[in-house]
Amino acid sequence: MANWFIAFIALVLLFVIFAGMVIAAKYLAPREYDKEKYDLYECGVPMVSEFRYFNIRFYIIAIMFTLFDIEAIFMYPWAVYFEELGILGVIEMGLFIIMVFVGWIYAYKKGALVWE
């Protein structure tokens, strides 16, 4: 249990350390206001339009990721204990993978993996 407490403390401490660094830089650096400087910088050319949209393709990738990451997570405990389960465990894992890959084939056929 102490292990995971250390992991939590480490995460919080790291956040505090890096926040401290960024805040320290704020007070060390000079500051001078200029309207042009505080506008968005895009390669030096004045900006024409704002852009705030995620392409729908990336949502599909995110959904596929959920599917396959869960698959991978299910396979981890099996990989650690698969020798006790024997040949039956391997066959069952094969069936599970086939079920997941039906989804992959569907996505493939629908063109979710095609980029133009």
Partner: peptide
């Protein structure tokens, strides 16, 4: 804040890291 290069870069990074 709507910088298109930042947006494209972030989208690509997430899709790539996640894949």
């Amino acid at each position: 804040g709507g910088n298109k290069y930042s947006y494209f870069g972030a989208q690509r990074e997430i899709a790539q890291v996640v894949s």
